[in-house]
Design a protein around this nucleic acid. Structure first.
Lengths: 233, 233
DNA sequence: TAGATTGTTAATCGATTAACAATC
DNA sequence: TAGATTGTTAATCGATTAACAATC
């Protein structure tokens, strides 16, 4: 195993004075979610105080994050929701669509393939592949399940840059190697595996069990006398 | 919306000199995954150097994390994999089992209910509920889908402390309120919603789209001249 | 106006890393 | 032994927060 970021989520220019810090970068999806919800409620503005309360972080931190994103607020009103949402989307490149191939048509792969809600972030499922002859040729929503033997050719033909890995652990590295060889640059990894990839390829590990672990710790320490701290990160 | 941790994952005693820092706490699932994989390969020891390379963090940081967890290494050999795995599991309470109810028998809810691999972390699916009459009474693996009207009574009868939320966004808060009223203390939230909960209840937001956002940023900036930084966090 | 709010700087806090001693 | 490695302390770095000026 070689070098592989624990979390690949950070700005590409972290050294610069101006710009978004790693920590701020990680908060962007949360900001986006909140303003999306507020937009749905018909709200036009949101203050740093409101945002800070929802996220349970310091009010000043919200203002600093906005300043770093070059999102300007209005005295007495807060930040314009439309502006903020758009700025985050622009920053993350969510306006341009991204085609992805799902590898593994198991329960999770199917759930991801059928999820409505990715489109609004520019994520388009371009196909789904599996190695099970019993699944190949069947349909998952509009997508015919392709043989994983067609992985490289499909990536090349469709110029796919992102794959979503939901295969069993033992095949994860093998599939990764093929995909990387065919030109993939990013891997959304739902398998419990630390993948080895060349440095020009980015991996995001969606280690779902990690979420449970944090809750387990909390549940097993419910009776610890110490007060529970306000916030993490 | 009121106070709600952005990430609820941190030790309960962060102020103390001795103990695991928030940042280290977040690395525990990764350490655990790596040593599990190494154990599967028949390895007995792993050095801080190996761990640091896989995680792409500094070697000293690994040793500091181990010291904070009170895991002792051996000169010239590194850390005993069995000891390390066990220590992390003990720390997180993964040895004691946790019963959870899945709310929402959609694609994701079913995928989680059917996932084999939670058991090894002590997570047991105690049932699955939905509000769709077409689903109620059907089976997801060994579990009969129950009406969500039985949520409170099921929580109380089975003394459930954790629910897994995979309902559509509009129902998320309502279901949460019922579950919290019935005594639930932790919510594993897969809906794109910032839930309001009393402070004794912990929420872990599994905002899956966040992972895509980080990859989107990377993919949209492939041609940025600046060198790509080594690691995040 | 007073109050609410943003925006910025400096101070503080927490996490990481460098340096190095210890030891098998 | 020399080399590999852990363990610890102090220095550095980065992120958060407090303080406060600006302004609508």
């Amino acid at each position: 195993m070689t070098d592989q970021p624990l979390e690949p989520e950070f700005p590409l220019k972290p050294a610069q004075k101006k710009g978004v810090s790693k920590a701020a970068f990680r908060r962007l999806p949360h900001y986006h979610q909140i303003v999306s919800a507020y937009e749905g409620l018909g709200r036009r503005y949101i203050s740093s105080k409101e945002l800070s309360q929802i996220l349970d972080i310091n009010e000043t931190l919200v203002r600093k994050d906005m300043a770093d994103l070059e999102i300007r607020g209005r005295q007495n009103q807060g930040y314009a929701i439309e502006v903020m949402k758009r700025a985050i989307e622009d920053y993350l490149g969510l306006q341009d669509s991204t085609d992805a191939l799902i590898i593994g048509a198991g329960h999770l792969g199917k759930a991801l393939a059928l999820y409505h809600g990715f489109e609004q972030y520019g994520l388009r499922i371009a196909g789904i592949l599996d190695n099970d002859p019993g699944k190949i040729g069947s349909y998952v929503g509009p997508h015919e399940v392709l043989s994983v033997f067609r992985l490289a050719s499909t990536i090349e033909r469709k110029k796919i840059k992102l794959i979503v890995l939901t295969v069993p652990r033992p095949s994860a590295q093998e599939v990764t190697d093929i995909a990387v060889g065919a030109g993939v640059r990013a891997i959304w990894n739902f398998t419990p595996t630390e993948l080895r990839v060349p440095e020009q390829v980015r991996v995001r590990n969606e280690q779902i069990i990690a979420g449970f672990m944090t809750l387990s710790y909390f549940l097993k320490n419910l009776n610890v006398p110490e007060e529970i701290p306000e916030a993490a990160e």
